[in-house]
Design a binder for these strands. Sequence first.
DNA 1: CAGTGAGCGAGCTTCCGCTTGACTT
Length: 835
Amino acid sequence: MKNLVIVESPAKAKTIEGFLGKDFVVKSSFGHIRDLNKKQLGVDINKDFLPDYEIPADKTKVVADLRKAAKEAETVWLASDEDREGEAISWHLAEALNLDITKTRRIVFHEITKQAITKAIESPRIIDINLVNAQQARRVLDRLVGYELSPVLWRKVKPSLSAGRVQSVAVRLVVDREEEIREFKVISWYRVIGKFFVNNDKGEGILIGELSRRFTNAEETVAFLESLKSASYHVSSVEKKPGKKSPAPPFTTSTLQQEAARKLGYPVARTMTLAQQLYEAGYITYMRTDSVNLSDTAITSVKNEIITNWGAHYSQVRHFTTKTKGAQEAHEAIRPTYLNQQTAGSDDGQRKLYDLIWKRTIASQMADAELERTNITIGISTTKKEEFIARGEVIKFDGFLKVYAESTDDDLSEDTEGLLPPVTKGEALKPGEITATQKFSQQPSRYTEASLVKKLEELGIGRPSTYAPIISTIQKREYVEKGERPGTTRQFDVITLLNGKTDFKIKTEKVGVDKGKLFPTDIGSLVNQYLVTNFPDIVDYQFTATVEKDFDEIAEGRLVWNKMISSFYAPFHKTVDKAIASTEKVKGERDLGIDPDTGKRICVKLARFGPIVQLGETENESGEKPRFAGLRKGQSMETITLNDALDLLKFPRLIGRYQDDDITAAIGRFGPYLLHQKKFYSLPAAIDPLTVTEAKAIEIMLAKQEKDRLSVIRTFDEDENVIIKNGRFGPYIAFGKANVPIPKKTDPATLSLEDCRQLSEAYLAVKGKSRTSKTAAPKKEPAVKKKAAPKAAADSTSVKKTTRATTTTEAKPKAKKASAGKAKPKTSAKKPKKA
DNA sequence: CAGTGAGCGAGCTTCCGCTTGACTT
């Protein structure tokens, strides 16, 4: 083998290999191949922040493979992306593969064409160590912030929490927005709309105009309408102005996520999965990019496509430049690979996303839409101060709008401005209904996943490859959740004047309905408050922008990376120490008031298992214990009231009696439920546990019993712990406490007790081995089982590990992430049991 | 599935950015 070319992605490798001929082998590194030691800080504070790099377990195979190939090759070409991270990947490759730096060539290309790649091969350079150092600084800073801040939260708030340069600011945005909404003061005004009849030699029509003045209260408005009773109206001016609209640039990762959310309703993670599938199938270019640039060949084929479909006058070649600071032109915008392919994708989701990308790309190279805007002012005979204005907008030439129009987050399309009837100045108009409607200012809107990404991008926080992970991280950590608010009803005034009579009506509307938006959780708000108070610099919106400037200077060789880190770390670390020493544990305790029955204090605070309300003091002379109640879903520590708390403290409450036993209602981890004869019955959301009647409760219980009875396929007299049932996912065996699925081929009704036992034991044996299961492990000796399972997994994987002496340490493969991280800790199981 | 709300102080958690699969459900 003569030449080995290493790129970042396997899809790219495949394409490029086709261009380069027999003497070249192209392999991929699958992104970064080394990272800081995950178990420790991974940075030696006392040795100028020397990073401790290791090859992560999931990369050992890749690196071994690349080492082998590099040994056989005469020349190794490092062709990772042309940005900070890409340069670092090349450098890590050179280090990890023990490459001779004088024989190693660094190449970059901006588009994946044969021409671009052969040209790149002709002009190799050496690794830019300044750029590498800028990346090391970025990496080390993120590690220092993340790994020093998170432990502060473990001590002061709750274990396992996390903080970081990016995620903490993302959470702050959501928390601050919620605060803005809470603080928002609604103001109202009266908007007057007049309807006028046109009847002239060109025909008949209607003009709708808005009064040039807004009124602040109803009295003023009524008085004005009264004054119009004797008024006559005429056209006082007609103004026509040409206008135009231009298309948006082609998609970047962030704008694709926004438009897919607005137009298709996709969460950002779904958009990225679908885009990845389209990319791997060869339908679109790379989906993680901040560039709006289109290659020359792409521009040419878009042009051809437009001319073929709509004619030359619809074509307008445009070169968009990327505004985002620090953006690299290493990639192109997201576009279809072949512009003449109008549809692509193997399922509906892919097809819709592809369609969006195709249209956006095409539209970006189309002509402006030409408009004509018309303003007609309508004079009022009784006043000189006010006038009505009718606005119209007509599309003279649709241009790019033929294909695609960008959506906005706040759809406030109240009036449809269309074509206005032809009128001439001075012409008299007959008035129709004149309506004054009370309007209210709108509170700021909560972030959606996509609009949060947009905001982060504006602040220069995060990268195309991390937008979707950021959004899921802050939700997984339960700092932020997608929620709903039912909204409230509001009254508003409508005053009309018709045929000389005024009429006053009060109407109602629903406002503040929010669905699928991001809400801060109590933990999110609390952690944010703690960070803002104690680490204001780190969670400052400008923090990333500030350090990016330093990274740029490092990249230009004007600043030494570990000096920069040192000047950041010294004060930062001091703040960390101070916070650990000085601050109390954060509970967010807030007084709600006094219980009218007992006279005791009621407060809300964060406890081990979430927010609770507390009645009475934790410690008092009489030794009385306080009463507690957890908050319900949708309630928050910041907004809960005394009355809400009193309601919560009413549980468990007696509903009635049935079959000589009490029925009680209570609220548990999974919501409200009924308890009767030690059996639980969930209460549907529509039923209020505070007001549920005995009759309704019995009805719910009977319905559940009936449903359970119907789901039983077969029971066995010999063993009542084995029941064949029909469930959501098909038939299964309820085997004691475990649920065992029945293979599709077998008819569940024909199974014997012996069959059931065999199936169950076989299933549980496999399940217990493959993962640390909560349900599969028998209750006996839980401590032994729980410890044995992950160890076994680790041993089995480490057998495959190829050991090799290198300059860097290689991380030992450990038990699979899924088994370690996924299961929520069961507190009951955690308690050490004494034998 | 439906407890608890405290606490001995074992042993763990955690960052951001590059890339794909290998996993359940």
